[in-house]
Design a binder for these strands. Structure first.
Lengths: 118, 118
DNA sequence: TCGGGACCTCACATCAATGGCAGCTCCTAG
DNA sequence: CTAGGAGCTGCCATTGATGTGAGGTCCCGA
């Protein structure tokens, strides 16, 4: 399969597929003209990449994770994913805290005697 | 007060203070040598800016908001802040959804018959 | 008068994923 | 044989707050 077909079948732009390769997330053989050739399994691979991105993993984290997955090193894969989950939790907590602070600002601003210097 | 002292007293880098000015968040007069001179109230202003950033407002949003605050236009200020709060809510919801998807990935990877192509 | 420190502006780098363009090669249908 | 479509590489832009550095001005103390 060539890059255009993979893009169509996986719903990802050609540009992104090349980017995934650049980031070490997706490999491709080359034909005699230098064009990328993908096996059938590349569709599933791209789907996995998209799922990971949707789960807010960075390409860097995914690049670290994929070799573990390929080696079927489940405990280490799990450990890494759980670390990512904690990062995500921390981010959610930070935003939740930001929301509290925003509510404080709203309260302050809503006070009738509020002035800019306060 | 000159920029170095304001930086020290507000705990913000000189670079950031100049950035705040560039974004229209903080104004300064200039002395004969072209150096910024700040009134005492600038310390409180910077603190307000930091609070807004901590509440995840962008400099753009804050630049829109500050004139309303200065005009003590409380209803419109509130409306803008509440819109920001909704944006924050949406962001939190997106990350929470990402966490769900990450949990799905963790589940998939943890299956004993998992292979990379799946 | 000289050195150094504080300040100035301008401008590029960072991080991430993607869009988009230029200029090239290559293959295939008409 | 030729036109066009698909692919290639390489590069710049985006967003936002900040770091960093070059090169220049200015002022004060020794």
């Amino acid at each position: 399969m060539r890059i255009g077909e993979l893009a169509r079948r996986s719903g990802v732009s050609v540009r992104s597929l090349r980017y995934y390769e650049e980031q070490g997330l997706l490999t491709a053989e080359r034909d005699s003209a230098g064009r990328r050739r993908y096996p059938e399994s590349a569709v599933a691979r791209v789907a996995l990449i998209r799922r990971a991105f949707a789960a807010s993993l960075s390409s860097r984290a995914l690049a670290d994770l994929l070799p573990l997955l390929e080696a079927k090193c489940i405990p280490r894969s799990r450990a890494m994913l759980i670390a990512e989950r904690e990062r995500l939790e921390a981010q959610i907590a930070a935003l939740t805290q930001a929301r509290v602070r925003l509510d404080e600002v709203i309260t302050v601003v809503s006070e009738p005697d509020w002035t800019c210097d306060s």
